[in-house]
Amino acid sequence: MKTAGIVGANGYTGSELVRVLAFHPNVTLSFLYSRSNSGTKISDLYPDLTAVCEMDLTDKPEEVDILFLCLPHKESQNWLTQNPVNDETLVIDLGNDFRLEGRFGERNFIYGLPEINKKNLLNSKSVANPGCFATAIQLALLPLAEKGVLNEVYTTGITGSTGAGQSLQATTHFTWRNDNISAYKTLTHQHVDEILQQLDTLNDKKVSLNFVPWRGDFARGIFTSSTVKSDLELSDIYQLYKEFYEDEPFVKVSEKAIDLKQVVNTNRCVIHIEKNENVVVIHSAVDNLLKGASGQAVQNMNIAMGWEENLGLNLKPAAF
C-alpha cells in the first residue's frame, strides 16, 4: 500500500479524487489538506462521502508517497515553495502551473495525457495533469495530427457548471445557469496553448485552433465538436482512429452517435466522426471531473507507479 495526500481536498476535483481513491486497492489516504476548512469532516462538506471517507480536513500536510495538488491555477508553485516535498514523492498537479513550462526546482513535470505520453509517465515523479477541455479536444484530434493532416480547426465545446470550480460566481448560480447557455472566453480559452503544444509536436505543420467554449445548464461533463477539412474517406478516418486507440482502455471510437451520459461518472472518452464532402466533424465527450481531472490523475498515478492502468477506475456511467 502507498500513502497519498490531497491538497485542496475541499474543491470539486479534490473531493472527486477522495471518492475514487477511497476504493483504490493500492492506496490509503493519509491527509486531506484545506486551509479554509481545517478541522471539518470531508463528509460534512460533501455528504455523498458519508461512510466512504470520514477524515477531517487539515492544514498540516504529512510526508506521503503520492501527492495530488488540486489547487486553483497558479497556486501549486506557491504551495510547493512553502511546503518542500521529498524528491521520491510522486507529485501530480491538477492545475495548469506546469503544463506549458514543466520545471520546478529539480522536478521536470511530464504532461499527463497517457494516450501520447505513456512511456514518459512510467516511473515519473512529477506529472502535469491536462485540462478538461484540453483532454477532450486533443483526444478528438491526435490521430489526424499524427497523420500530419491538421491545418485549420474550428471547435465548439460545452461544459457543466463544476468546470468553473466550487467558488460561487454569478454564472454558476442556479437561477442563472438553469435553462441557460452562453459562450465564454471565445478564442482565448486558457487550454488553447496547452492543446497546440501537443498537436504541433505531432503534426507536420503548425495547427490553427479556433475554440468557442460554452457554459451548459448541467453539472458535469464536456461535449466537443471539432471541424476540419480532409480528403480522406470516412472509413479510412475511422480505421485511423481505431488503430491509434486500439490499446487505450479509456478511449472508445464509436460509429454510432454519442451522448454525454455515456461518459459521465467514468474515466472514459467516447469519439464519433461524421463527414460531408470534404468537411469532417469529430465529436468527443468526457466527464470533466474524471477523465478531465481526477480520474486521469489516478490513471497517471497508476502508470507512474507501474500498476495496471485502469486500477480503481472501472466506473460505470449513470444512464438515468
Rank of each mutant, 00 (worst) to 15 (best):
V264G: 14
T201P: 08
V85L: 05
L234A: 05
V270E: 08
I66F: 11
N178M: 13
N37R: 13
D231K: 15
G105R: 07
Q296L: 06
R107E: 00
K119P: 02
E194I: 07
D259M: 15
F109A: 07
T156F: 08
V7K: 08
V270W: 07
T28C: 12
D247L: 11
E88F: 09
I303C: 05
V298G: 03
W176M: 08
P143H: 06
R220S: 10
G148M: 04
Q296T: 03
V270R: 01
S30M: 06
E63Y: 13
V286G: 01
R107T: 05
A9E: 11
T162E: 14
A140V: 13
Q77I: 10
A4V: 13
V298N: 01
V153D: 10
H173I: 10
V27H: 04
Y111F: 03
A4S: 02
A128C: 01
V298M: 02
V127P: 00
D259K: 15
I137W: 03
E115F: 00
N117V: 01
S230N: 12
N120E: 15
Q169K: 13
G312K: 07
E115K: 01
D193W: 06
M305I: 06
P25S: 14
R19Y: 03
G160E: 04
L234P: 01
L21S: 04
E101Q: 12
E75G: 15
T188H: 07
I158Y: 14
I92F: 06
N276R: 15
Q77T: 12
V228K: 11
C53R: 13
T156Y: 08
V264H: 00
D44Y: 09
L232G: 06
N310V: 13
C132A: 14
Y184N: 10
S254I: 01
N86G: 12
W79E: 05
L141R: 09
D44I: 08
V85Q: 01
E88A: 04
C53T: 05
K147T: 15
D217T: 07
I271R: 00
A145L: 07
N37E: 15
I282F: 11
I258H: 15
L187R: 00
R99W: 02
Q239S: 04
L80S: 05
V85N: 08
I258Q: 15
D44H: 10
L315K: 05
N314E: 12
D236I: 11
G292F: 06
L260R: 02
Q166R: 05
N117P: 01
D65T: 02
K256P: 03
V7P: 05
A319D: 01
D236N: 06
T172K: 10
N96R: 03
T50W: 13
S30Q: 14
D87T: 07
F223E: 05
T28F: 12
L80K: 04
N314S: 10
A183D: 09
D200V: 13
R35N: 13
K119E: 05
